[in-house]
Design a protein around this nucleic acid. Structure first.
Lengths: 333, 333
DNA sequence: CTGAAAGCGCTAACAG
DNA sequence: CTGTTAGCGCTTTCAG
């Protein structure tokens, strides 16, 4: 059986479609008697309101787009997946649905997807922009719907932005290492030039100067954010005679640990290590890994709250919000 | 500026809306001259077709729903996240969008979400049903859109189903342990009574009988799928004097490893272990963990292919497809 | 307290 | 080769 329309219900209940609509949406007073008739008709016909028609009329889809930059790696993906999870949950609580899309860290794909979204689809957009300080989002984001940027700060503020203050966790980590007597602390980072990487490195430097320590630039190693590069850079650092390593990237953290394990470098006795991002799995590495934890789920929640605020008509200037990161101390330092 | 409609374009180009529509959709012949005028008008007005109106008319949203049962655990979630990733990718290749929704392993939430989807929203649904052999999906799935079930088999077949043959990987794992001389092989599983758990346990039994070995029922431990339960059951097994443990659940695998580490039980010398599901992180446990790997990403792809086949009008009886699982041998056995 | 009717933006049958 | 026009199912104004 094909779905019954509102008209069918109206006929069966002997009322107008207007009344049916008002009963459904509780948008004007309807006599109890009439309501009952309408409900009965709805039940009998197994009526399901057509949300597409409703959207067309009300110019509201109740759908929010989410654009994340996943690449082929469990580790880095998990961060965004976790954000997505938080977002979906809060969205549902507020009666919204989530369209998930992946830019694959590819600017072109990202911009294309935004164009698709521009086709009147979504009521709002949350985007973790592709790594790039260059791109101008004003090109495709015309303000038809509110946008919230997460995790990475876009060049031009075209919406609220929610970031994680990963510098704070980094600072705490380095300070702890220094307090434990480490002076030659290696630093491994993914490509610099993107906000998150730069922020963390700055914190590393700051921790040194704040503690009156000289910093050896040779101990700062930058490379691609891969397992293998993590291994290589760790090797370089070990040869430099570091007693501790801070890895500012999750995937590289694994490579670093692997190198130390493979070369029988004892953690933390020979080399202490602090990594980035927290996962259940880190409880079963040996020793359990100390890391800077980013509140991914909370980031998702916050982003939605900002977005809903805009959807409710908030017209204030765009805001920038930072969530704290946290140093989780386990056995590796 | 508010978005231009097709009518605006038609007026500006001095043609009818029908022509504009046909130009856009290439659905009937239009003279080159006319086309050019239309394109020009579109560009000038920055015209974006309204997909909601289009959907209302064509009764097709190009949106596919995905319903997964995430709970608050990195480990188990990652499996479904990875599936979602595969699904999104293939969907995009085919011009579809993905609405992501989480049932939280709660039957009521799941059924509610299906009801939301029934509101004419989606063109198709992929669902990893909540753990339960009881529920009758025919109640809410009326065949208005095709549905594909993944990972878990529902009681009544109301759509194609794509599963992973995790029994095969389990069988291989047990066989390998037996071949290595283990006879007392403990088995840890999450709650029985759901298809995946039952299948794996059956494979365990089969591996024993196929090898002419007696099986000690006391070595089969069932419990909640949590880290802590994994630890507890491992303790019980160690006290039973097992020389190897097979853990048929990802979260419990971590608990098991943790227990062995904490109690200085050497892996694999004192107790060999094989776990479930593969993650990057398992490369840095010590020793690196051997596991049964499930092709989550491929599962996603396969599900979409089935769905699209249905959307293209395939009316054959529902099919059941199984993807192979794979034993990944590292250092823990 | 309720109904009639316009119209959201688009597609497609029908007509030329 | 192109235009006219009737809806898709709903919301909402205006009128009673």
């Amino acid at each position: 059986m094909v779905n019954a329309s509102m008209k069918d219900v109206a006929i069966k209940a002997n009322v107008s479609t207007a009344t049916v609509s008002h009963v459904i949406n509780e948008t004007r007073y309807v006599a109890e008697e009439t309501k009952k008739k309408v409900y009965a008709a709805m039940r009998e016909l197994d009526y399901q309101p057509n949300s597409v028609a409703r959207s067309l009329r009300s110019r509201k889809t109740n759908i929010i787009g989410l654009l994340v930059p996943l690449v082929a790696s469990d580790t880095s993906n998990f961060f965004f997946m976790s954000i997505a999870n938080g977002i979906e949950q809060v969205l549902k609580e507020n009666g919204y649905n989530l369209i998930l899309s992946n830019s694959g860290e590819d600017l072109e794909v990202e911009q294309n997807q935004i164009k698709v979204f521009n086709t009147q689809f979504i009521d709002g957009l949350i985007v973790a922009p592709v790594d790039s300080k260059e791109h101008d989002y004003r090109e495709n984001l015309h303000g038809t719907y509110p946008t919230v940027f997460i995790d990475r700060e876009p060049k031009d503020r075209v919406g609220d932005t929610v970031l994680i203050d990963s510098g704070a966790g980094t600072y705490d980590g380095i300070r702890l290492l220094i307090k434990k007597g480490h002076h030659r602390i290696g630093y491994i980072t993914g490509p610099l030039g993107i906000t998150t990487s730069d922020e963390r490195l700055a914190a590393y430097r700051r921790a040194f100067t704040d503690n009156g320590l000289a910093l050896d630039e040779a101990l700062i190693k930058e490379g691609k954010a891969t397992f293998e590069t993590g291994e290589e850079l760790t090797e370089e650092l070990v040869k430099e005679g570091v007693t501790a390593i801070f890895v500012a990237n999750n995937v590289m953290t694994m490579g670093a640990v692997r190198y130390l394990q493979d070369h029988k470098v004892r953690i933390p006795d020979d080399v202490a290590i602090i990594g980035f991002d927290d996962y259940d799995w880190l409880r079963i590495t040996s020793p359990p890994l100390s890391v800077v934890k980013q509140p991914s789920y909370e980031l998702g929640r916050a982003a939605v709250e900002f977005l809903i605020d805009r959807l409710n008509g908030n017209e204030e200037p765009y805001r920038l919000h930072r969530l704290p990161s946290e140093l989780v101390i386990r056995g590796s330092c």
